[in-house]
């Protein structure tokens, strides 16, 4: 467990020092929010109804920019071999990279939540439910993205292939997260929203288990 946390914190430190990926994602978020804000007009009800879609579209696309960062740092520095030569089963590398991407994605999601709440009237009185949805959605996204980013890390076309691979698998997570967020915005009974949360939790569990078990086989050169 200590190695997993060390790897995630080390990668965060490198990412903050290099800054390229995080800045690109934040810039992209700003542009998406601005364009959708203009397109939807000033009507409060329209903006509020669109808020769940805006939140998850922005997060999904910003996530696609961040997805490759977990492995880009190894490819840029040519250090992937050193990670593979660490002792023990290679599953821990997956968990370390997953934790790094999850922390990055969740931090961006929190910022996005505040921005969408301010611009699109997302009801902040539903903050606990919204945070739970973001937590579950970010977990599923990071589980899939970490796996596929590791799979294509050594390919020259990784940046092109990765979003296609990730989106083709992660769509159920995004759809369930949008439905849960919409339920919270429309004030439907919590029992109905909880059904989406359960579905998200099930996706997360499946993706995390399968990815960590398969990872040692796909990461070898």
């Amino acid at each position: 467990m200590r190695r997993i946390v060390t790897l995630a914190l080390r990668d965060l430190r490198l990412e903050l020092r290099g800054r390229a990926g995080l800045f690109a994602a934040l810039f992209f978020l700003g542009v998406v929010l601005l364009i959708l804000g203009f397109a939807l007009g000033p009507e409060k009800d329209d903006l509020r109804r669109a808020a769940p879609g805006v939140l998850w579209v922005a997060l999904a696309f910003a996530g696609s920019l961040l997805a490759g960062r977990a492995w880009a740092v190894e490819v840029e520095n040519d250090t992937l071999d050193d990670l593979l030569l660490t002792p023990g089963s290679r599953e821990w590398i997956y968990w370390g990279k997953f934790l790094f991407l999850w922390l990055l994605l969740f931090a961006v999601a929190l910022l996005l939540l505040v921005l969408v709440a301010g611009m699109f009237y997302l009801p902040l009185e539903q903050a606990p439910g919204l945070l739970l949805t973001l937590f579950l959605g970010a977990t599923g996204y990071a589980a899939v993205a970490t796996f596929y980013a590791g799979l294509v890390a050594r390919l020259a076309t990784a940046q092109l292939i990765l979003p296609i691979l990730v989106f083709s698998v992660v769509v159920p997570v995004i759809l369930a997260a949008v439905r849960a967020t919409l339920g919270l915005v429309e004030g439907v009974p919590l029992g109905e929203v909880a059904a989406w949360w359960k579905l998200l939790a099930a996706f997360d569990l499946i993706y995390l288990t399968a990815s960590s078990l398969l990872f040692p086989f796909v990461v070898e050169g």
């Binding site: 490198l14 840029e76 250090t79 050193d82």
Partner: peptide, 8 residues
Amino acid sequence: PPAFYRHF
């Protein structure tokens, strides 16, 4: 050449 993290 040996590999290291350049920003570190």
